[in-house]
Amino acid sequence: MSKILIISGSPSSVSRSGAISTYIRNILKEGGNQVEKLVLRELPAEAMVHAQFNHPEIKKAKKLVEESDALVVVSPIYKASYPLGRRRSGARGCRYGSSWRSRNRGKTNERI
């Protein structure tokens, strides 16, 4: 039996990613695993913003991660948003399987 932690990163209490994490949790439990769920929005915002690592809720979350055999991270993806690294790399608007021209080198790179 494995100890598995599902980390949910959705900012909403009702969301598709929340439903997906519940679905995954049920499947893992049916397989005989011990499954815990950590909902990031339930952690105290002030403790996270001010990096208060000694806060009891932050300590509890850290302990859950450390004691887990596996992690499953579920987070929403918003349309029309780009990860910061893609914005700065000039790869804005790339899609899986498309090619793009680097602004810095003028070379064409194929994405797999």
Rank of each mutant, 00 (worst) to 15 (best):
A51R: 15
V14H: 13
K107L: 11
K60L: 08
Y78H: 03
R105V: 14
M48R: 11
K79W: 05
R111L: 12
E30N: 07
V74R: 00
Y82S: 14
Y23P: 03
A91M: 13
N26Y: 04
K79F: 06
S98E: 15
N26F: 04
I7Y: 02
S98P: 06
I6F: 00
Y82M: 13
R41I: 11
S2F: 02
S21M: 01
R25A: 10
L38Q: 07
I27C: 07
S75Q: 04
I6C: 01
T108R: 12
G93R: 03
R16S: 13
G9H: 03
G93I: 01
V72F: 00
S102T: 05
R16C: 10
G93A: 01
L43I: 04
S15F: 08
K107E: 14
E46C: 08
P83V: 04
E66N: 05
L38I: 09
S68K: 02
Y78T: 01
N26A: 05
I6M: 01
A19P: 06
I77Y: 03
S2E: 01
R16F: 12
P44D: 10
Y96E: 09
A80G: 05
P76H: 09
Y96H: 10
R16N: 08
G97A: 02
G93C: 02
V49E: 08
I7A: 03
S68H: 02
T22R: 12
N109G: 09
S13N: 15
G106A: 10
R16K: 14
L84D: 08
L28N: 03
K59P: 07
A51P: 12
A70V: 01
R95L: 09
N33Q: 05
W100A: 13
E42S: 15
S8E: 11
L71V: 01
G32H: 03
V14Q: 14
V74I: 00
S68L: 00
V49K: 10
P44R: 10
E67S: 06
R86E: 08
L71I: 00
A70W: 02
E57P: 08
G9C: 06
R92N: 11
G90H: 04
Y82P: 09
S98L: 14
P44A: 10
I27R: 11
D69T: 01
S13R: 15
S89H: 09
A61T: 11
K107D: 10
K3T: 01
V72G: 00
L64K: 08
T108W: 07
F53H: 15
A80T: 06
S81I: 08
V65C: 02
K60Y: 08
S99Q: 14
S81Q: 09
T22W: 07
G18F: 06
S17N: 02
A91N: 09
